[in-house]
Amino acid sequence: MKERILTCIICPRGCTLRVTLDEAGVPTSVEGNACPRGKTYAETECTAPMRTVTSTVRCTDGSVIPVKTDRAIPKRLVFDCMKEINLLRVSPECAVGDILIEHILGTDASLVVTGKKP
């Protein structure tokens, strides 16, 4: 039996989570979560942590526009995801919600435009 203390990142409340893990490292119980999403977070975080990536993409006119992965991707892929993002060159006419890359790095997540060109 092992224990891990985590800070939940799902909402600004930032609950301190106490996770009990079995010998195989699989979570068996979670305490300290104020809502069910905290439990899910703790379980994922201990087995396959996920993160949403937010960044900017360079437009062909030199400006940058904000983007995000529309869902979390495996945390270990965050820097690879940045490499993909950095290689992109898109039209400055992109609209909010436009999908720039589907299934980025083979995940379920798409890279989408979140704002207009400044």
């Binding site: 949403t52 937010t54 904000p66 995000k68 909010v96 979140t114 704002g115 207009k116």
Partner: peptide, 10 residues
């Protein structure tokens, strides 16, 4: 829902 700053503003 969880939004980025530009999305919230939009």
């Amino acid at each position: 829902e969880e939004l980025t700053g530009p999305e919230y503003a939009y």
